[in-house]
Amino acid sequence: MFTTSAAPPTGAVRHGPLWTRAFHAFNLVVLVVMGASGLQIYNANPVFGGRGGITVPELFTLGGWLAGGRDWHFGFMGLYAANLGLWIGLLLRRRHRRLAAVGDVGTLRASGNPPKRRLAAHRITYTLMLIVLAFSLITGLAMYKPAQFWWLVALFSFAEGAGHDSWQVLRISHLATIPAIALLLGAHVALSWRVGGLRLLRSMFV
């Protein structure tokens, strides 16, 4: 923060406010914990293949065994939800600048101005991230308390006519948020890199 004062030498990194950086890093930690502990839970009974199914390498899991994975997953879910709530609150307050609008899709289609296109793509990425995270929260809640949130489970019974039980649809949907958020995270890092490279990365971390 102090580097922003009085004529910084060229090459010095302009840091974001401390709370922004802390919040940003905290987001990453919570995401990794939720993803890795979720994969640990996956391994107890793989969504694809059941008991004979292929498990995720231990490298990507957190908890050591099912109960340990559940400790982390349910220990961090409150932080995860609070985090997401804060994000949505922040973005709604600054909606005009940060959240995607229909115009962004038009920009991507029609604009020949690369920075403008990147900004539009980035806003769409942020917004999709929030949607994916909220979706993971909803599908997770439905499986955590299926008796109390039976109506939430019922929303996932749309494929029952085709022989896909709502529970299996829920499990696949919840799991699918991991590759989805990984892709969006990749897009976010790539887009940020195009804008500011290592300097921007450092301004958001250290």
Partner: peptide
């Protein structure tokens, strides 16, 4: 893991 569970359960 256990400490996390004990802290949050």
């Amino acid at each position: 893991s256990e400490a996390v569970g004990e802290a949050t359960q």
